[in-house]
Design a protein around this nucleic acid. Structure first.
Length: 290
DNA sequence: GTCCAGGTCGCGC
DNA sequence: GCGCGACATGGA
């Protein structure tokens, strides 16, 4: 079975898939040919699917692996989730206008870069974001692999593919399990507490996505999550399509110093000044500033 | 062994 | 509001 999504004009599927590293973290799975990207997705009905994403002209194909049949309701759910992951409905016109006013940014417009793949739920992406802090990317990968392997539902008996854990699965096994088996270290408490708060329904994700709610207000809500500081905040805001905060971490500092301040050690204010003119697109400007 | 990683928390001032 | 040590883990 295959579902199709009609893509907006000039949608760069490859860029949207790979310009952010999320596609390398399960339950995204890269095929053996290195070309196809798949994802294990558990639906509200309980059905666990393996989706494979492909692009042909202005169509995004979603191949449902192993001939699983879907109800109309499940079809709607899959489409909705993939639209979210690929940011089909996000309007980047403002970003491209700023690019066209700046020297050296024509390629970003020409290649229609700017869409960064996200997971199908904020629950998952917030956990993954916490797993990127104060560690190396290779450990972010291994912690995420451990998480899905020990707490996620297995796709099939003859595979090593897993869905992302539900909050309930995390709560059921407990914080100590996250520490000793999943090897999340001191992050165990952060992840456990987040799953608990999430299960209690304290986060209003609709509000976070509502453009009428100012980013400052959303930011103050996100910052209340234990384990989320300024860096993780900017990543989570990026996930919900708000690009006004810069992810000031070791990579950011390295990039800005190398490119703009080779002879001095810049202050935080000096570093932030570089992207000031990008207003509500600072994050994207930094991300695509090669 | 020591240092540090795409940081953050909690404390004391 | 700042500065600073602690925090788990694994790779260099």
């Amino acid at each position: 079975m295959r579902l199709d999504i009609h893509l907006p004009k000039n949608f760069n599927f490859e860029a949207a898939t790979r310009d952010h590293g999320w596609y390398l973290l399960p339950p995204f799975y890269v095929g053996k040919d290195e070309k196809t990207v798949m994802r294990a997705e558990k639906l509200e009905s309980g059905k666990l699917l393996m989706l494979e994403f492909e692009n042909n002209m202005d169509q995004l194909h979603i191949k449902i692996k192993d001939d699983r049949k879907l109800t109309d309701k499940e079809v709607t759910e899959v489409i909705k989730r993939v639209e979210w992951m690929y940011r089909i409905n996000e309007d980047l016109t403002g970003f491209y206008e700023l690019c066209s006013r700046n020297e050296g940014w024509s390629n970003v417009v020409k290649l229609q870069k700017g869409r960064l793949l996200r997971s199908s739920s904020l629950f998952e992406d917030i956990i993954k974001t916490i797993l990127t802090t104060n560690t190396t990317w290779s450990r972010t990968v291994s912690m995420t692999e451990n998480l899905v392997k020990h707490l996620g539902e297995k796709y099939s008996n003859d595979s090593e593919l897993y869905a992302f854990p539900t909050p309930e699965a995390i709560l059921e096994k407990g914080e100590e399990f996250l520490n000793t088996t999943v090897k999340l270290g001191y992050r165990s408490k952060y992840i456990y507490d987040f799953a608990e708060n999430y299960a209690n329904g304290i986060y209003d994700f609709k509000e976070w996505q509502n453009p009428n709610i100012p980013t400052e207000k959303v930011a103050s809500e996100i910052t209340k999550i234990n384990g989320v500081g300024p860096y993780a905040l900017s990543i989570i805001l990026m996930i919900v399509g708000r690009y006004d905060f810069l992810p000031i971490d070791s990579e950011f500092k390295k990039h800005v110093k190398t490119k703009y301040y080779p002879d001095i050690t810049p202050s935080k204010a000096q570093m932030e000044k570089i992207y000031e003119e990008w207003e509500e697109y600072k994050f994207l400007a930094y991300w695509f500033d090669v």
